[in-house]
Simulated scan of single mutants.
Amino acid sequence: MGYGKTVQDELREPARHLRKAIPAVYQGFGQLHEAALAPGAVDAKTKELIALAISVSKECDGCIAAHARGAVRNGATIEEGAEAIGVAIMMNGGPATVYGPRAFAAFQEFVRERDEPHG
C-alpha cells in the first residue's frame, strides 16, 4: 500500500469517532468542501490541484492524500500534479521539499490505481 492510502487508512477510524462527536461541524465543513470544489469559472481538477499545493504548504498529510486523490479522480496528469507541487515548493521553500515528495508519491499512487486495467 502506498503513502496516500496509508494516511487515509490511519485517519479513517479516528475521523469517524470525531465526526460522531461533532456532526454539525463535519456537516458544515462538508458543505463548504462541496461548494468550494464545485466546477464553476475554475474546473474541479484545477481546484483540486490548488488544494493539493496548499496541502503541501500546510504540511497536512491527510489533506495531501485527499486532494491528490481528488485531483486524479478529476483527470489530473502526473505532469499537472508535479507542477502544482512545484508551485507549493516555490511558495513555501524548504518544508515543501519534504511534503512535496510525499504529495507526489500519493499522486502517483492514485494515478496508478486509476490507470490499472480492471478485470
Rank of each mutant, 00 (worst) to 15 (best):
N74M: 10
A106C: 02
R112F: 13
K45Q: 04
L49A: 02
G94P: 10
A106L: 03
R69K: 12
E113P: 06
G2S: 12
E48K: 07
K45N: 01
N92F: 05
K45W: 01
G86S: 02
A44P: 01
G28Y: 03
A36T: 07
E10D: 15
V72T: 05
A65G: 03
R114V: 01
K58T: 07
S57T: 14
R102W: 09
A88L: 10
G30N: 00
A106Q: 00
S57K: 13
P95V: 11
R102P: 03
I89Y: 01
R19G: 12
E59T: 10
A36R: 06
A21F: 14
G70F: 00
P101I: 00
E79M: 08
E10R: 15
Y26H: 11
V98H: 05
R73G: 08
E13K: 11
P95N: 12
A82H: 11
P14M: 09
K58C: 06
V72D: 02
E48L: 09
E79A: 05
V87F: 08
L52D: 03
P117M: 13
L11E: 13
A105I: 14
G86W: 09
G100M: 03
K5D: 00
H67R: 06
D43K: 07
R16H: 13
K5H: 05
I64K: 05
F110Q: 04
M1Y: 10
Q27S: 15
K20L: 06
D9N: 11
G4F: 05
G119C: 08
L52A: 09
S57W: 14
H67G: 00
F29C: 05
E109R: 01
Q108D: 15
T46E: 00
G30T: 02
I85S: 01
A44Y: 01
Y26P: 09
I78L: 15
R73S: 11
G62A: 06
A76H: 02
Q8C: 09
